[in-house]
Amino acid sequence: MMLIPCPWCGPRNEVEFHYGGQADVACPRDPDAVSDAEWARFLFFRANPMGAFTERWMHRAGCRRWFTVRRDTVTHEIRPVGAEQERAVTV
């Protein structure tokens, strides 16, 4: 069970959140200009590290806003990222 720090609502039970996976995945600016392999990489391939992972969560049962945390995928320990990155809107 995780206590997830929502930057707007504070630490809340994980059941209130929706998981968004890896953070900072940029959509190709011009999808027509990329190769099939690059497009596949954007659609389907994500980092899957054992250890620190920068990821997105959405406070579904609260403020319904997205944010970024850095979480260890073994210990589940969550460390906040810088305020700017935390509240950034992923493009």
Partner: peptide, 13 residues
């Protein structure tokens, strides 16, 4: 459980 993990444990809910 919805999140990525290698922890071999999940949440009670």
């Amino acid at each position: 459980d919805s999140y990525n993990s290698y922890g071999r444990r999940g949440a009670f809910p």
